[in-house]
């Protein structure tokens, strides 16, 4: 129970620390004052104060009210019986895998180019998502890559990464395919 309370307080403690740090930072913006006009930090500081106050309020409420989640306006109208949310299994490894894969895509796409990078990302993401029909995975990856490539590179002329040598050859080949 105590651990659960500490865990639920943590986001608000972090929020409060961030609010204090940002409040100090907002007072250090460099600018030339104009008469008695409010400075560039005034508006962000209002938002930071609101954030800090909300964090403090929620910390106090949770400590006093025994860590009960607050309900909002809409929940009163909800007649669906709520099952325990933890009943749905959570796979942290999949989540981390997904985030890492997106990071790898962001690193690799300038080198591999949009076509190759996207094709590999799509296939890898489906595997990370525990889908195991290999034919569908590779077929769908190829189809989606081609559709996106045609739509955005050849029709809408969106400037997407072409990649560096030797991978840029794949982009060149894609542009050279007649009929696409």
């Amino acid at each position: 129970m105590q651990n659960h309370l500490v865990r639920s307080l943590l986001p608000y403690v972090v929020g409060l620390v961030i609010a204090i740090t940002l409040y100090i930072n907002a007072g250090q913006f460099e600018y030339t004052p104009r008469g008695d006009l409010l400075g560039p930090g005034a508006w962000p500081r209002l938002a930071i104060l609101l954030m800090g106050a909300a964090c403090l309020y929620e910390l106090g409420r949770r400590i006093i009210a025994g860590n009960r989640d607050a309900t909002g306006f809409i929940e009163v109208f909800d007649r669906e019986p709520h099952t325990d949310e933890q009943a749905e299994p959570v796979y942290l490894s999949l989540l981390i895998g997904g985030v890492v894969l997106m990071g790898v895509y962001a690193v690799a796409v300038p080198y591999l180019g949009f076509i190759l990078g996207t094709f590999l990302f799509l296939a890898a993401f489906m595997y990370v998502g525990r889908y195991r029909d290999h034919a569908v995975i590779w077929g769908a990856s190829a189809a989606v890559t081609i559709v996106c490539g045609v739509l955005f590179l050849r029709i809408a002329y969106v400037s997407l990464p072409r990649g560096i040598a030797p991978f840029d050859k794949i982009t060149d080949i894609f542009f050279a395919i007649p009929g696409l």
Partner: peptide, 9 residues
């Protein structure tokens, strides 16, 4: 839905 404080944050 949920806490007003969370929405403010």
């Amino acid at each position: 839905k949920g806490s007003l404080a969370n929405a403010f944050i």
